[in-house]
């Protein structure tokens, strides 16, 4: 499915001063029974945003007027660790998150972000502390995928890295599968021919003969 092209996002940033915010916190498992991928935004951080009676929890950053719509998240280390559920990313996207900043990410979450138009920005731990203060004081953040720069009001711009192919695909809104078929279809055919010769057992439909 083609994604919308991404270039920059500008707006406020919500600071989550916590490490190990795992995908169960971002998207609790029981909502995985929903098979649609649209409208998952209301479940993002569900058990942090709402108490057992369904009332909003005061003091949770995304419940405050100022940060409810923040398109940027700044979080402690190991953000998005845990499960591979892409719903975590779809839910963030659904609530308007387009960039996440942390000193480390769960790896599957990181790659899920890149495939859904959320920019995961990896910066050193010292920078994260400074950025959290800036976010809380209401500074405007700009995540620029073209320039690979995070710009924050009143601070020098910070460079970040994104794997080049994924960056291109995000900028253009390309579909990964189409890209592979068009560029590497013949290579995949050739690989299979070689592998079938070398490891024929991987090509038998049933082994019991």
């Amino acid at each position: 499915m083609p994604n919308q092209p991404f270039v920059t996002v500008t707006g406020s940033a919500a600071a989550m001063r916590e490490e190990n915010i795992d995908t169960d916190i971002i998207f609790p498992a029981r909502f995985l029974l929903i098979t649609a991928r649209a409208d998952l935004g209301e479940y993002a951080f569900h058990d942090r945003r709402f108490d057992a009676d369904g009332n909003e929890v005061q003091g949770f950053v995304l419940n405050s007027e100022q940060f409810r719509e923040a398109p940027v998240l700044v979080a402690g280390a190991n953000f998005g660790s845990g499960s591979s559920r892409e719903q975590a990313v779809w839910a963030l996207l659904g609530r308007g998150t387009r960039a996440v900043v942390s000193s480390s990410f769960g790896e599957i979450f990181y790659s899920n972000c890149l495939r859904n138009g959320i920019v995961p920005i990896l910066l050193p731990k010292e920078d994260i502390a400074v950025l959290m203060d800036a976010a809380e004081s209401g500074a405007v953040f700009t995540a620029d995928l073209e320039a690979l720069e995070l710009r924050v009001e009143g601070q020098p711009p910070r460079r970040f890295e994104i794997p080049p192919e994924r960056r291109m695909a995000m900028l253009k809104g390309w579909d990964e599968t189409d890209q592979i078929v068009n560029q590497f279809g013949a290579d995949i055919d050739a690989f299979e021919q070689r592998q079938r010769k070398a490891q024929p057992w991987l090509y038998q439909k049933e082994q019991d003969t």
Partner: peptide, 29 residues
């Protein structure tokens, strides 16, 4: 994510997201 388990057999086994699953189904890569 617990696809790591299969590495016990000397296989390169890793968890992926749903978008990547779609890619694997279509192109096996």
């Amino acid at each position: 994510s617990h696809t790591t388990t299969h590495g016990a057999f000397g296989a390169l086994a890793f968890g992926i997201g749903a978008s990547e699953q779609g890619t694997v189904m279509a192109v096996q890569a």
